[in-house]
Nucleic acid binder design. Structure first.
Length: 278
DNA sequence: CCCCAGGCTTAAT
DNA sequence: ATTAAGCATGGG
């Protein structure tokens, strides 16, 4: 099907914004995206037009929400006053096109447990290895792919196979999370209707989940868009650009979206600096 | 070979 | 309550 999107929507920026780890880009510029067992191919046709491999029904039932197409990101960007906050205004402009995807809460929990103390390429590799080791293999006309594994599928791996995913000391955290969910001590889906505070507390009850990972799950899996994960990059931004303190209250309830613009802006500039001058 | 990565747990103050 | 070491592994 063909789709017109008039609001912010830039596949390259979303793919490089550190919220999704399984998007694969083709030479054509199209992305292959796996979500809830389904795979989508989405290709920019220029302007606001995109070609999607799904039919209209699957788009309405699955992908519309995944891409958060009900939110108006342009108006969120416009809430920032350049005179009051030039850094954030620059970040919003630079990151125009980013959206906060509504990804699967369970997948986000495991993905961000794996993310700790890794850079993004290493995170992607670890997650992919886990999917190949434990996830269901699906054949579709474009080839095969692996679904993100369920808690039971992860628990069914013996130690040797899990170790082969090269997750290091995070192996026991991944197992702990899978055991908690399989036993019903934690239900990631149920947190979709919980308050932000309740969700953070429940997530942090898992061994290996601290405040940062819990906030990432909250933002990218539960779509609590006021969640504000602070990693090493955001820490740098707060220290260097906001020595007097960052005004989170002013930007509520959209702190997570602004956080994502700032993260992308700062990291992309650091990346380009390294390529130009080293 | 070095430093660092979308950090957390545990132990020591 | 706050601080520090230890952690497995790989990318740059």
């Amino acid at each position: 099907m063909t789709l017109q999107i008039s609001d912010d929507f830039d596949l390259d920026k979303i793919a490089d914004s550190g919220q999704c780890f399984r998007w694969v880009k083709e030479a054509s510029g199209a992305y292959r995206i796996i979500h809830k067992g389904r795979r989508l191919r989405i290709r920019p046709l220029g302007g606001e037009t995109f070609d999607l491999s799904c039919d209209e029904e699957e788009f309405r039932n699955l992908w519309h929400d995944y891409f958060d197409l009900g939110e108006d990101y342009r108006s969120v960007r416009r809430r920032v006053n350049r005179d009051e906050d030039p850094f954030l205004a620059d970040a919003c402009e630079y990151g125009k096109g980013i959206r906060i995807l509504r990804q699967d809460p369970w997948e986000m929990l495991i993905s961000f447990i794996i993310s700790q103390n890794k850079n993004i390429p290493a995170i992607k590799k670890g997650i992919e290895m886990l999917c190949e080791a434990a996830g269901e293999r699906v054949e579709d006309p474009a080839g095969s792919y692996y679904v993100f594994p369920s808690p039971e599928e992860i628990l069914s791996l013996d130690d040797e196979k899990l170790a082969a995913c090269r997750l290091g000391y995070r192996c026991r955290y991944v197992k702990a999370a899978a055991a908690d969910v399989a036993a019903g001590r934690l239900d990631p889906e149920s947190l979709l209707d919980a308050s932000e505070e309740t969700a953070l507390e429940a997530l942090m009850s898992v061994c290996g989940v601290g405040i940062k990972v819990a906030n990432c799950v909250s933002l990218f899996g539960l779509h609590h868009i006021d969640a504000f994960p602070v990693d090493v990059w955001i820490r740098r931004i707060l220290d260097r650009e906001y020595p007097g303190g960052y005004p989170k209250e002013k930007y509520s309830p959209y702190n997570g979206i602004y956080q994502q613009y700032m993260f992308f802006y700062y990291r992309d500039f650091a990346f380009k600096r390294n390529n130009l001058f080293v």
